[in-house]
């Protein structure tokens, strides 16, 4: 790879950087959403537990259906909110993996740059026959 080719490759931002940033942003949005849903769930919890145990236990579709619907909502939301938070975390792990992959590619490019430029800088060769690598 020639010095010009390396210079062109090193210019701008690697695609992996943008992918990593997108994944991190998606993860952050998921965690923020989970937090907001958690606050709403907290309000439902406070309402539900403001009733005595007798009222909570006696709730049926005909008697106090509101309480029954509330406990249904709380249970249903909690069932998917926990995995949803982990989806958010997985976005971060994917983003970190993308960033690490980009580091690998960049280190290969840096290796090419060293191989091509050091012989010239030290006056011991042309440096244009440097191994292209796969960066």
């Amino acid at each position: 790879m020639t010095l010009q080719q390396i210079s062109q490759k090193a210019r701008g931002t690697h695609r992996g950087t943008n992918i990593a940033l997108l994944l991190v942003l998606a993860g952050m949005m998921i965690e923020m959403t989970a937090f907001i849903i958690g606050i709403a769930l907290g309000i439902s919890y406070a309402d539900y537990w403001a009733n005595s145990q007798a009222v909570r236990d006696a709730a049926s579709p005909t008697n106090n259906p509101g309480i029954l619907s509330q406990v249904g909502t709380i249970t249903a939301v909690e069932a998917w909110l926990v995995p949803f938070k982990f989806v958010g975390l997985s976005m971060f792990f994917s983003g970190i993996a993308a960033a690490l992959y980009t580091i690998v590619k960049t280190m290969q490019l840096r290796g090419d740059a060293f191989a091509a430029s050091f012989p010239i800088a030290l006056g011991i060769g042309s440096g244009t026959d440097a191994d292209g690598g796969n960066s």
């Binding site: 090193a10 210019r11 690697h14 490019l109 840096r110 740059a113 091509a116 430029s117 050091f118 010239i120």
Partner: peptide, 11 residues
Amino acid sequence: RFQASRFVEVA
């Protein structure tokens, strides 16, 4: 990436 660019510039 900056270091790669810088060493190319030095060469």
